[in-house]
């Protein structure tokens, strides 16, 4: 038995996949199409005798596959991933540890690829340069050093150079700087898996 919430999730997943399939279209053309298809689904569900999972899935099937909607929108067939594309997320994530060169190779492959959208390419480039190696370097920079010296009067004078993040800020920054590149890599992996499916 499925709840409305489960069916909403199925619809939401369909619309997200459709948005992905139409990602080559400019947003001003893509969004009205998705909006109208969402309205079509709402109207269809209103007219269903039973808004159960089977009926909702049948309704979505009646819309046709993403490829035919994409073709009707004037887009060419989705290209399949090349044999180099699966290496891209690995190189972006860990390539920096290969003397820094691996990340640059991954970056070139990312921008040369026909399967990644402009958004994915920008995310892959800027989160983060150097991948996890870049993160490691970045986290090593904001370190503080304190040196103290005693005076003839017995007092101690300490000087702190550099800077450090307060712990409350530092931990979230650390977590984000590690998690975000992993999320971007996962997004690239998912794109390849979807094209292979």
């Amino acid at each position: 038995m499925s709840s409305d919430n489960d069916n909403d999730k199925i619809v939401s997943h369909y619309l997200n996949q459709l948005r992905q399939a139409l990602s080559d279209l400019p947003a001003r053309r893509r969004e009205p199409i998705i909006e109208e298809i969402a309205e079509h689904i709402r109207t269809g569900r209103d007219r269903l005798a039973h808004d159960d999972e089977v009926s909702v899935r049948q309704l979505l099937e009646s819309l046709g596959d993403y490829e035919s909607i994409r073709r009707e929108a004037g887009l060419s067939a989705l290209p399949g991933p090349s044999r180099f594309d699966p290496w891209v997320p690995w190189l972006l994530l860990f390539g920096g540890f290969l003397f820094g060169v691996g990340w640059f190779v991954g970056l070139v492959m990312l921008w040369e690829s026909r399967v990644f959208s402009l958004r994915a390419k920008l995310l892959g480039t800027f989160i983060w340069p150097g991948g996890l190696f870049g993160t490691m370097i970045l986290l090593g920079l904001p370190s503080a050093a304190t040196s103290c010296s005693g005076s003839s009067t017995g007092s101690t004078h300490c000087v702190t150079t550099g800077f450090h993040l307060p712990q409350a800020l530092g931990l979230p920054v650390l977590a984000l700087s590690v998690i975000l590149p992993i999320i971007v890599a996962a997004m690239l992996f998912r794109r390849i898996a979807r094209l292979r499916a």
């Binding site: 009646s62 046709g64 909607i69």
Partner: peptide, 14 residues
Amino acid sequence: LIAGEGTIYPLLSR
């Protein structure tokens, strides 16, 4: 006349 009902929307948009 159409392969899937969803294809009508890009067509109408065009």
